[in-house]
Simulated scan of single mutants.
Amino acid sequence: MPARTRTKRRSSLPPLKLSTLLPSHYNLRPDEVNTVACPDCQTWQRIMGDKTKTIRDHYSTDLSGAELGAGQRDTRCPSARRIVEIDVTIAQWAQQVEEGSTQVAARRPTKVLRKVPTPKPAALHQLAPAAPTADSARRASEAHRARCAECSGTETCPTGLRLEGDVRVLRYREPQRVAAQARAEQEQRRAERRRAGQESGRRRAEWAGVRLRVLAADILRELPLGGAVGPIRGVEVPADHEDTREVSRARAEARTEQAIRAASPVRCEAA
């Protein structure tokens, strides 16, 4: 960009204090050029001067003559050559920048954890059929013979023969299946007894941990309190067979009538 005529006049705006800006809007690193974000045009500008610090003389658009459009004028920024007061030390500025970066890192969203979809139960036609037994095979064979027209007392269709063969095989394997089922049920009962024993052991360990505190609380509860008032005694319950509600109502009416007579003006004049 070609050089431009710069003025030595200072900006009429009040001095800009760095303590009023965010730490991310200026740079005070000793090994770099001190810069500040112009509060008017929002562009980064150098901080010029040795004794009196000022913002570099710049324009609002900061464009060259070739880049300006037709009828567009490049105006001087109001904060050009504005006095800058560096009222923040480098250590303070570095600490503010570190604290700001820590807060920004804490505000960043954490990793999104996808919700595990709830498993859907399988449909009825997708469920695996139960293992056949000798009884279920026999019922299936009898139902087939009752519906099949080819199966009679002396003849049997191929499907009927297959079902009868399944019945024979399952009857042969029935003792093994019953024994395996009994072993599985026995193992399940053993596992339940082990879990019950572990639960009782855990409860005993918990009670052993709080037993002394419970005993101390019971002893303190039985000790009499110093300076305490004795138990509150309520109205004695009548031992006769009178209707306590009717008696209370009659007594209340008598007290009301006595109060009316005491406040009656006729009685006062007579007295």
Rank of each mutant, 00 (worst) to 15 (best):
R204I: 10
A37D: 04
S19K: 02
E187W: 02
A239Y: 13
R190Y: 07
A182W: 05
P238A: 05
G234K: 14
N34W: 10
S152T: 15
G197T: 05
E85N: 03
P109I: 02
A122F: 13
E99W: 05
E269C: 10
T118R: 14
A182E: 15
G165M: 06
R73G: 09
V88W: 00
K120M: 07
R46S: 08
Q258E: 13
P265C: 09
T102Q: 13
G71K: 09
K17C: 01
V169W: 07
Q188I: 08
T89R: 00
T43N: 13
Q186T: 03
L18A: 00
A254I: 10
S101E: 15
W93Q: 02
Q96I: 01
S141K: 03
Q176S: 09
V33M: 12
P15M: 01
C77A: 06
I86Y: 00
L63W: 06
I86A: 01
A131T: 15
P23W: 00
V97H: 01
E174G: 08
T75S: 11
P117Y: 08
R267L: 15
I260A: 15
D57R: 03
R194Q: 13
N34C: 11
P129V: 04
L170R: 12
D240A: 05
I55E: 00
D87I: 00
G71P: 11
Q181M: 13
L163G: 01
Q95G: 07
T7A: 10
T102R: 15
D31E: 15
Q96N: 07
L21W: 01
